[in-house]
Design a protein around this nucleic acid. Structure first.
Length: 584
RNA sequence: CGGGGAGUAGCUCAGCUUGGUAGAGCGCCAGCUUUGGGAGCUGGAUGUCGCAGGUUCGAAUCCUGUCUCCCCGACCA
């Protein structure tokens, strides 16, 4: 490819609407252009990277035994009603109407379609297991598209769905996908770590997310380097014990006592003089509404509610904080003076840390008053103790006991063991060896292909631009011709090397633009080609052409040697060809 | 949806407070000079100042409404 023949609109300045580095570089390096919020056109360089990521994904999915299909993006709402997700996923569903005013949905994911397919085509255990995958555009009415390709209304996903006859088989399918994901991300030159994850609206029994550590990530992962424990904050647990709660001296025998706390509205207010109650000695009382029924959640004052965990205790992912009017109606006081002492008409769920806590302070359900010496076991009717809070940095690892760390991360892949939720609802049943009808045991597995592309940029860049891994670089090699006249020997040599590399199967671009050298060097670094071969008079005077890895040292190489040198270097630096991968 | 910010040339922005009829840099076109780290000079093209309405002799500027984009929160690959 000659640079002048394609379109690589690089920008010296960052676009005003890009905030994070990968988004800026995506635009500046001319990989994509925005049509409108959350919708992007892939330009030639962006598309080349995308296709290379897809190729790696395909190879690894095929290697893992998955079979490729292609399902409609436009789907009938009926199958969503059958699965029960028409309501549950209603927020993210794009809905369209045909000329007869019939409604359709644009697929945000394909459990319903693939399960419908299997319901029709798979009848016997002899046909199982099967794992179908596709690489396809997904549509999601995101509340807030963000950060370029990171969260878009339309994005490319690899989605796979496994169907097994028994639980052991389902676990094997899950494991095969998990392993494939490890390989895929490694081949893309990406550091992506599997962490335990919440199953959320997908339902199902367990799941892992693949996380790319990055300051700009929207998720938090909790991890311990010693034990290898790693989990999404939504799911993470710690080894923190209940006995660490409560004041130092034993106040368990003292009766509860009401005391005036005018103008105290928050946990923070109560930690200040004259009250001086540490947040860890307070009980935070939250009122949640589930299907218009109230429930009370108790946390230690210094802890934060984990909504995913709360959802599983409340038995619904759909709940909201109660309005002040509802709270007054229920407890007789405004937020700021709430407590669960003496409450018996609504369920009270307390964080497990509070079990056995004594000498605590909580609201008195009377505006401007709190209670001290609260002994949970004695004074509060707790329906159930459960893990309801976010783990905090420094708490003991549940496995090693060492302090946990937390970092931001980008979710690039997610594997779920689904169980029989969809197969039962959509009739994906088969006859087992005893002639008995059973629902398939399913798993589903997603990779955000476009997001992965941007995550690589987020992880591999410097002040000069992107630094692509060889495996997914738009071109592996950029030949920078420093003179471009057709009869100029410099240009003739550059063209010769370009042709020779192309013959050897190297993905190479020749920068044949009539521009000053500095401009072309900057561009090649911005776009991020892993290897640059500059052909110019100065280099030739020193004995050859300039061989310059994007992140390495410049070498002068004899033009006769440059092809071999390049092939060797590419082989050594292509994460996709890493032989160590075949040994695990 | 709640809170914050912004819409002016292809891009990055100034002008708006204090109304007087459109600017800079980059990019683009032409010419000359330059030619190893985003060149210099000269000349040139490019705008319904997001849109609609209002106030006014006169609106990019003031007022009202509306749309879009970006950031923070709830959702997710």
């Amino acid at each position: 490819m000659y640079w002048s023949k394609t379109l690589i609109p690089t920008l010296k300045e960052s676009p005003a609407d890009a905030e994070i580095i990968s988004h800026k570089l995506l635009i500046r390096a001319g990989l994509v252009r925005k049509l409108t919020g959350g919708l992007y056109t892939f330009l030639p360089m962006g598309l080349k990277v995308l296709r290379k990521v897809e190729k790696i994904v395909r190879e690894e999915m095929n290697r893992a035994g998955a079979i490729e299909v292609f399902m409609p993006a436009l789907q009938p709402p009926e199958i969503w009603q059958k699965s029960g997700r028409y309501e549950a996923a209603s927020d993210v569903l794009f809905k369209v109407h045909d000329r007869a005013r019939k409604e359709w949905v644009l697929g945000p994911t394909h459990e319903e379609v693939v399960t419908t397919l299997v319901a029709g085509e798979i009848n016997s255990y002899k046909q199982l297991p099967k794992n179908f995958y596709q690489i396809q555009t997904k549509f999601r009415d995101e509340i807030r598209p963000r950060f370029g390709l990171m969260r878009a209304k339309e994005f490319i996903m690899k989605d796979a769905y496994s169907f097994d006859a028994d639980d052991e088989g389902a676990n094997n399918s899950y494991r095969a996908m998990y392993d494939a994901y490890v390989r895929i991300f490694r081949r893309c030159g990406l550091v992506a770590l599997p962490v335990e994850a919440d199953t959320g609206v997908m339902g199902g029994s367990f799941s892992h997310e693949f996380m790319v550590p990055a300051e700009t990530g929207e998720d938090f992962m909790v991890y311990c380097e010693e034990s290898g424990y790693a989990a999404n904050l939504e799911k993470a647990v710690s080894g923190l014990k209940p006995d660490s709660t409560g004041p130092d001296e034993d106040r368990s025998a003292l009766p509860t006592e009401e005391f005036p706390t005018p103008d105290v509205r928050t946990i923070e207010d109560l930690t200040k003089a004259p009250f001086d109650v540490p947040a860890s000695h307070q009980i935070k009382t939250l009122v949640m509404m589930v299907d218009s029924k109230p429930a009370i959640i108790l946390l230690r004052g210094d802890h934060q509610l984990n909504e995913a965990k709360a959802g599983s205790v409340l038995g619904s992912t759909v709940f909201r904080p109660a309005e002040p009017a509802e709270i007054i109606d229920l407890l007789g006081a405004k937020p700021g003076s709430l407590g669960a002492v003496g409450v018996s008409t609504v369920p009270v769920y307390a964080d497990a840390i509070l079990e056995g806590a004594t000498g605590m302070v909580t609201g008195a359900n009377r505006d401007g008053f709190h209670l001290r010496n609260v002994n949970i076991a004695r004074d509060i009717t707790v329906t159930r103790f459960a893990d309801l809070r976010n783990v905090e940095e420094g708490e003991p690892c549940p496995q090693s006991g060492l302090p946990l760390k937390i970092r931001r991360s980008i979710e690039v892949g997610h594997v779920f063991k689904l169980g029989t939720k969809y197969s039962e609802k959509l009739g994906a049943l088969f006859l087992d060896a005893n002639g008995k009808q059973q629902p398939c045991i399913m798993g589903c597995y997603g990779i955000g292909v476009t997001r992965t592309l941007q995550a690589v940029i987020e992880q591999s860049n410097d002040k000069n631009g992107i630094s692509w891994p060889v495996s997914i670089a738009p071109f592996e090699v950029c030949i920078t011709a420093l003179d471009v006249g057709d009869d100029n020997p410099v240009f003739q040599l550059a063209r010769k090397i370009h042709a020779q590399l192309q013959d050897k199967g190297v993905d190479v671009i020749l920068d044949d633009r009539d521009l000053r050298p500095g401009f072309k060097f900057k561009d090649s670094e911005l776009v991020g080609f892993p290897l640059r071969i500059a052909v110019g008079e100065k280099g030739l005077a020193k004995g050859g052409v300039e061989f310059k890895p994007r992140d390495g040292e410049l070498e002068i190489v004899d033009p006769e040697q440059i092809v071999d040198k390049t092939l060797t270097w590419l082989r050594e630096h292509n994460t996709s060809l890493d032989r160590s991968m075949d040994q695990d």
